[in-house]
Write a protein that binds this DNA or RNA. Structure first.
Lengths: 146, 146
DNA sequence: GAACAATAGTTGGTACAACAAACAATTGAT
DNA sequence: ATCAATTGTTTGTTGTACCAACTATTGTTC
């Protein structure tokens, strides 16, 4: 275990960053009386952005698998934020749409997300952002190629 | 929900990258007959790197809280990879040390970790690496400051 | 048009880490 | 000696993710 590490581990950083951001968002939501996890927020916001999405489309948009999305939608439906509507053309599909109260929650959550995002990006530049995204996309790509 | 997004969301990228890396590592381990989660690997490797660590030190080194570390150590002890030894000076503390079989597993896992890490970093440079770490550290810092 | 394949979504089961809160035991400080 | 701080455990809860198997519907092929 004493080899020289040419490439240091970045995984733990990613994991830690992920946890910190998620926890921060949950707390910020809670302070504002919003009861949403980051994953629920992502699904809700994607559903709110484009009306007329099926669950598979939502799954693709959020990079989650269908069981996970299905269950998150269950929760958001139970809370009255989303509705599953049957589609006439294809009876296998559901149209996921946002309710009024779902929209309200999303509208309330959005500035919080933006504010925390800004806070996280303090001292960083636009080119940092581009690099950050490019690096993450490259790594993801590399992992997916094999 | 139609505001211009000055700073786009990077959270989902981080989350997705995190998941992909973790899943890849679990699978790579499994293919090699190693039964370790990424978290277990981190704790084991930290414990293997420096002998003579207490659980609190391990928790700090891995950026996990004590209950989480405690349980991971439980698992690794059950599998015979780690041992808790009482300390004479301070009877609240345990000395966490790696067993022979724990070392063997770590030695076997290490090249896999390195190889996957390299695979992930294909097409990226040393300066990318520095930027990547700097950016993540900055964000983490920003979140912790408030 | 019947058989088979593909797609959409659900469900059950499992694994696992993380968090919060409360706790016991020990040690340190006033 | 009392009170505070530290170390680690335990309990309970939450939540996502993954796999695999399943139903229902639609599309394709012969």
């Amino acid at each position: 275990m004493k080899e020289i590490e040419l490439i240091k581990g970045y995984g733990p950083y990613v994991d830690r960053l992920n946890r910190i951001m998620k926890l921060d968002l949950v707390k910020s939501f809670k302070e504002a009386g919003i009861n949403l996890t980051p994953e629920q927020w992502i699904v809700l916001s994607k559903a709110a952005a484009k009306k007329e999405m099926s669950q598979t489309e939502l799954a693709n948009a959020t990079f989650k698998d269908s069981p996970t999305v299905s269950r998150i939608i269950d929760i958001l439906c139970d809370r009255g934020y989303l509705i599953r509507t049957a589609i006439q053309n294809d009876r296998r599909k559901f149209l996921i749409s946002v309710t009024t109260s779902g929209s309200e929650v999303a509208e309330k959550a959005y500035p919080i997300v933006m504010s925390r995002r800004k806070q996280g990006w303090k001292g960083l530049s636009k080119s940092d952002f581009n690099n950050f995204i490019r690096i993450m996309e490259t790594i993801i790509d590399n992992y997916q190629k094999k």
